[in-house]
Design a protein around this nucleic acid. Structure first.
Lengths: 169, 169
DNA sequence: TGTGATTTCATACTAAAGGATGAGGCCTTA
DNA sequence: TAAGGCCTCATCCTTTAGTATGAAATCACA
């Protein structure tokens, strides 16, 4: 269910994360494209260098102009490359729009899930404790375990990760 | 004006309806940054060219190496530029496609909206400051104003309220 | 030319969050 | 019955968040 059980921080605390096989699969599919892309890139750079030699010796173009052309083309390549990468990331993020993962399949305990839901509603530890009839210290313990399991440094990040993992909505 | 902000304490936080003049204002503000950015870019390119001349005549570096350095640096500039742009465009795309209240109609300023977006992604004040190239103290100021405007006591509550108000997704 | 809005930054302070650790009780299961 | 997971609570400590206040720069608009 999209959970990686391979990372063990504590014996009973498993880090929840997006399944890695999907990414691996995607990577293997695109290896050919990567090789092709970088091969073409290297080839075109070489051609550019050769062209610059031709331009200098046959046409008599100035060195600054050659540099300018190379710089502009390279900036264009950089922008193109960056946009290609970012579009892939966007697709990966949007790709799976399914139902929520039940908390029992999410790696969280029932109590941790309850705490997480209240965090998502914007309550403080104290308020969560009042709503669940437990002490603030207990809430802190749940939140700490929550952060470990969701691989987050802050409650806001935990909420974000949990939403990405479809644990909460 | 979809939101009632009549409970404001500070006089400078009162929201007068924002028109297109506000956008013009921000456009002019950003124009200066653009001019500065491209000016610096052009200047650094010129310096690179001058350095290339020095390298050829004084050090005796080969032309291909110069071209390679220029190309690599330019690709880096392109990637950096593209990423800086895409972060802005992502926010704009999301706000348009998902029928959100535009930040100019939400009572939030553009900067506060940007900060809010990053809070929603789970970043700390320090990380937000690094991403927006401002100090952590400034982020704190923005967050404080954000909390007042969104009638929230915590950032998690601010995120929740902003989502209820369709300011963010 | 002054006023207001925005953005930026700073300092000093309080409140809340988070980390690390230990421990006791409850329940299920091997 | 022993073991392990879960829930509970606590303490000490550090980090982060948030409040209050002042101030300076920029720019639009009246």
């Amino acid at each position: 269910m999209g959970i990686d059980f391979s990372h063990f921080v504590k014996p009973n605390l498993k880090i929840i994360s997006l399944h890695s096989t999907t990414l691996k699969f995607y990577f293997c599919l695109n290896m050919k494209k990567y090789v092709l892309f970088y091969g073409l890139l290297a080839f075109s750079m070489l051609m550019l260098f050769q062209l610059s030699s031709l331009a200098i010796f046959k046409v008599g173009a100035s060195r600054d102009w050659i540099l300018l052309v190379v710089a502009v083309v390279s900036i264009g390549i950089g922008i193109f490359y960056s946009k290609a990468q970012s579009s892939k990331n966007q697709i990966a993020e949007v790709s799976d729009t399914e139902n929520l993962v039940h908390y029992s399949n999410s790696g969280l305990t029932e109590r941790e899930y309850e705490v997480l839901e209240l965090l998502n509603l914007g309550f403080s530890n104290k308020e969560v404790g009042e709503k669940l009839f437990i002490s603030e210290n207990t809430v802190k313990t749940h939140v700490s375990n929550l952060l470990l399991k969701l691989n987050a440094k802050r409650r806001t990040q935990a909420i974000k990760n949990a939403k990405d993992l479809k644990i909460i909505s």
